[in-house]
Simulated scan of single mutants.
Amino acid sequence: MDSMRNKNIRIIGIPENVEKENGAESVLNEIIEENFPNLGIDGEMCVEEGFRSTRFVNVKRPAARHIVVKLAKRKDKERILREVRNKKKRITYKGAPIRLSANFSTETLQARRGWSDIFKALKDKNFQPRILYPARISFRYEGEISSFPDKQKLGEFVTKSPPLQEILKKVLIPEKRKKGERGHSPQTRETNG
């Protein structure tokens, strides 16, 4: 599913109906002109199509639907997202803060969000964490970059390193408890409760 989206950029935070005037494609060009004037792809970037994503109803957080822009070249998408990561200040559209991100499937986004607590703990301790495609975490530890496809592999690595275990114990232990609770059969829960 993500391979079909590999040229797409998701624009988050643009008010509804802004694209009605010039099209969703022009919104990306305006963002690039406003935030990255030296990027050098304004004339050569080819946008194939742009559209509003389908609405996901969340009563607690009503928000505008995201704009998805499909570029002709994956290289353009990577250049834009690299600039977004390197930019220290907020990305804006007509002065209002927005976000640009890769357009992943729901499953990939959910898997990537699963690393958020661990990512934050590592970032707070300056381990330079990164979420790699599709949903792997990597970080620098003792001068080397370590990468893990899932929390189980990370947990095995952490048990061999007491300092790292201390840093991640609060975010890894709840995962183990959740898994342990799910592993009980209904009969076990009844006898314990």
Results as ranks from 00 to 15, higher is better:
1 M>P: 10
33 E>S: 14
150 D>N: 12
144 E>Y: 06
111 A>H: 09
81 L>M: 11
147 S>T: 15
192 N>I: 15
192 N>C: 07
7 K>G: 01
192 N>E: 15
8 N>T: 02
63 A>Q: 15
80 I>P: 04
24 A>P: 10
129 P>R: 04
162 P>G: 02
109 L>A: 04
23 G>H: 01
110 Q>N: 13
25 E>V: 11
162 P>L: 03
99 R>W: 07
120 K>M: 11
145 I>Y: 06
153 K>S: 11
172 L>C: 05
130 R>C: 12
51 F>G: 06
168 L>Y: 04
143 G>E: 06
54 T>V: 11
72 A>Q: 12
152 Q>N: 14
64 A>I: 06
12 I>D: 00
76 D>S: 08
71 L>M: 07
120 K>N: 15
94 K>Q: 13
176 K>D: 03
38 N>Y: 09
58 N>L: 12
19 E>C: 06
138 S>A: 15
23 G>R: 01
12 I>L: 02
102 A>R: 04
143 G>Q: 11
38 N>K: 12
120 K>G: 09
154 L>S: 01
186 P>Q: 01
180 G>L: 10
107 E>V: 13
145 I>S: 09
67 I>V: 11
38 N>H: 12
60 K>A: 14
48 E>H: 10
161 S>F: 01
177 R>E: 15
78 E>G: 05
126 N>C: 09
